[in-house]
Design a protein around this nucleic acid. Sequence first.
DNA 1: GCTTGACCTCAACTTAACTTGAGGTTCTAT
DNA 2: ATAGAACCTCAAGTTAAGTTGAGGTCAAGC
Lengths: 154, 154
Amino acid sequence: MAQDKSTIDINRPLTVGEVAARAGVAVSTLHFYEERKLIQSIRTGGNQRRYRREVLRRVAVIKAAQRVGIPLADIGAALSSLPDGRVPNAQDWAGLSARWRSALDRRIEDLIALRDHLDGCIGCGCLSITACPLRNPEDRLAEQGAGAQLLLRP
Amino acid sequence: MAQDKSTIDINRPLTVGEVAARAGVAVSTLHFYEERKLIQSIRTGGNQRRYRREVLRRVAVIKAAQRVGIPLADIGAALSSLPDGRVPNAQDWAGLSARWRSALDRRIEDLIALRDHLDGCIGCGCLSITACPLRNPEDRLAEQGAGAQLLLRP
DNA sequence: GCTTGACCTCAACTTAACTTGAGGTTCTAT
DNA sequence: ATAGAACCTCAAGTTAAGTTGAGGTCAAGC
């Protein structure tokens, strides 16, 4: 029975307040994510949300992806590739990770380019030149005889 | 005189439309940046904006910074360290670069940590553990007995 | 059994970063 | 000298990602 209790305890669903505290987000944010289908909950008889512990990882992943600059809508799309019924396993998560990897790489490159070339390029005039590494590759394609461009796009 | 003409030509101020085309942004965006004091213009007798060529570099820097997730307000604060009257020289720009350097470094390290551990951690469960390298350093400080957190903040 | 802290919904507000539109003016090329 | 392209201002709208608040319900401890 002691064993039963501990099993029950570890699987006990979390309240919205508990998830908020442990995931480091506001309760309203969890409501918002749920509305946007990024997370799910079940309801108690009294209509209160209860979350599986797995939601903590999901929220952590959402925050990670946001940190990389991925919009919530995209995150939602990616998360929706996770299985609906069963708890996602390592492979499910790895697939997600692969999808975001290139965005992450790009962002890191942009950051490094910004850092390394602020000193070197910013004052030298090369920013106006097509070959400047600070320029956004997309700009290069998009332009028709344009001039200076660097590297934005959040 | 031919020389004079070419000098005049290369220093000729740009219209808002020209800047927009060459910088790869909308005219309305330039109006907006001006309102936010990120760029400046002088006016013709007919109240039309004229820009120094230097504005192209400024806009390029703004775009670069935005691309890595720096808010316009911060960009504006940094740009305001550039001289008002005279055209910024390489040292002015280098100063800007220095101001951003540590923030950029931190951010780069943060994202690299994320990248290095994305595959490994996302599926393994350690995301919920305080020691997970994927967690945002800021979360770690901010939390009071919280649980899972990862790495956001665009 | 009742008080108090958590929850619930729904609508409205917020901030950032722009875009769109209306109504009017200036420039430039014919 | 005039048509059409570019400009101008100012107000309002848009999207993302939440937050805030009003008005009402649930549940855990004393």
